[in-house]
Design a protein around this nucleic acid. Structure first.
Lengths: 342, 342
DNA sequence: TTGTAGGCGTTATCAG
DNA sequence: CTGATAACGCCTACAA
């Protein structure tokens, strides 16, 4: 049982192929009798007609496919963005091609080629590209949009995640609670992560604005070589030394995974209470933050609207002013942060 | 700057389009001079030639696309399978279309249509389909394979996850440790989940084999209406009542998310030690199990080879005997299970 | 060993 | 309002 073509539909409906096309695509500026319309629709349903996207694409050069680039699926943050995007594109009748680069430039390049080959209608990057030259060239032909930190080096439409502001409001929250010895725990990544840098900038700014000295903030880059989804372990290890020093009263994890590790360690130490003895918080507002007990204080960019916006921009080929796009981050206060101990 | 076509390559190389096709596809049974071959290759590289997949697909009806169906990305188990699959398909030059159904039959159907439209070369289901009639019909035209529990009702190639065996070995582990009052905590799902049922069967079998009475096992279906990634909360809530009753010495979560919730609650209760006071374990061997502290005892099906096998079967259109395919589950012993308290 | 020509299923441009 | 007809870019007999 071969698939029906528009020709078959035309024959069954007793009209020409053209008419079938008009009806099925609701071609604007064409008026045809309800009678004809109905005949075509019935025939199409009867034959279970599904247009051949190859033929269609060959004519229209549109694939109804979007390429989504992400560094890893192990971080729930990306999974969350994916979900928002996939959800919305499905609504619009588009499909998503998953391009997981594992922060590997070779992989990224070969995925880009695949995207060109399949003539995706647009590409969304959920992180800072490694292969800037390639992606910039491609962006001349295929709309590309970045959801990440705005970078000077990349001349591609970017929806800024505003890591600076995120770091700032989170830190301000801690400062208001009276914390004066804050640790920022970063985990190592193999490639550039602007976001992490910007968060740090924001944290520093908040500390400075509060009139505190440099020693109020301690940056800990944990050397644990962790596979992505073991970033939590980096937090876990860092917390050990932090608790030993008994100096910091609040710890910021570079993301929820790390904060989660921080919390795990604390929960496993007898006599340590969160947040009475030490406050813990992080970024991304992933489900990990909600799943943990106590729940973790974290920061949410308005990711869902931003994801939808990204899709809209791609499909309408809009070049909205990027400045208007940076989402206003929102502090999500959980149970893991409280007043600094005396 | 428009994309180069094979015609352009032919012109630049000074040969015919046919020759270009032969060279670029390494068409077997054709021998042409190294000279020609090199000329074509050079020209292709120079023009940055990437074949148009529409035109190609129109001729060959192959899309180099695979549709992957999963119920949700919120459960790390599916994310893990996705990762394995995506990883392997990328290696083979294939791409993955993400079809996330949210356990919604409508959505599933519309994604199936999209798969037909895009003429995916194969479909992998990571769960039990809701739309059996549709998927069965489609499977006559497009290879389909299920990675899940084998069901009598579905006549589609299935790689069995063998939930029964999983439940059995996990329970045997607990029994060996002397546990005689075991709780199995299920969370509610909106649709059929054969896997969960089979796990329960396996657990029951193990209990029976050990000569214990029915009351050695307590099945708790937590009524918490939770969105998928808050399954942990179901575990959290269940643990509260379990600890109150002080009857069970071991708890099995229906998956790692639930077990995780169980553990969270326990860690938050003063004076409860894991595993000294109560053992906790679950299924799926996701990163949550490793990330938790204490690490969670869990069960791993050999998911990675199974995922690769699924892809191989699709692409080679093999109908290997399904019986040979059920992976042998492996117990992953973590720090969360120990001898039953006296 | 290489080139010519026809067609895959659509859509779009024209006439009628 | 409807129907021929020509592309789109590639593959593949078949011919040279």
């Amino acid at each position: 049982m071969k698939r029906a073509t528009s020709k078959d539909v035309a024959k069954l409906a007793g009209v020409s192929q053209t008419t079938v096309s008009f009806v099925l695509n609701n071609t604007p500026g064409i008026s045809l009798s309800d009678e004809t319309r109905r005949k075509v629709l019935d025939a199409a349903r009867e034959l279970n007609y599904i247009p051949n996207s190859f033929a269609k694409g060959l004519k229209t050069s549109r694939s109804k496919l979007l390429g989504i680039f992400l560094p890893t699926m192990a971080n729930p943050f990306y999974q969350k963005l994916m979900q928002y995007i996939e959800n919305y594109t499905a609504e619009l009748g588009y499909n998503v091609m998953l391009c997981c680069t594992y922060r590997n430039a070779e992989r990224e390049k070969s995925y880009l080629d695949l995207c060109v080959e399949h003539q995706v209608d647009g590409i969304i990057y959920l992180f800072t590209p490694n292969w800037v030259k390639q992606i910039t060239r491609i962006s001349h032909n295929i709309p590309v949009i970045l959801i990440s930190e705005k970078s000077e080096d990349i001349s591609i439409n970017t929806i800024s995640l505003n890591g600076f502001q995120c770091g700032k409001i989170l830190t301000e929250h801690l400062l208001q609670l009276g914390h004066k010895n804050i640790a920022y725990v970063m985990s190592p990544v193999t490639s550039v992560s602007l976001t992490r840098q910007m968060r740090l900038q924001g944290i520093k700014a908040a500390v400075q604005n509060a009139g505190l000295g440099e020693d109020a903030l301690e940056v800990i880059t944990n050397p644990v070589v962790a596979s992505d989804n073991l970033e939590a372990n980096a937090g876990f290890a860092a917390m050990e030394s932090i608790l030993k020093k008994k100096r910091n009263t609040a710890v910021i994890g570079v993301n929820d995974l790390v904060s989660f590790g921080l919390l795990s360690k604390a929960l496993n130490m007898d006599g340590i209470r969160i947040p009475e003895d030490i406050s813990i918080c992080g970024f991304d507002n992933t489900y990990l933050a909600h799943m943990a007990h106590p729940t973790l204080t974290t920061v949410e960019y308005c990711t869902e609207p931003l994801c939808r916006l990204a899709v809209d921009m791609l499909l309408n080929n809009n070049s909205i002013d990027v400045l208007k796009l940076s989402g206003e981050p929102k502090l999500i206060i959980g149970e893991s942060t409280g007043p600094a101990p005396l």
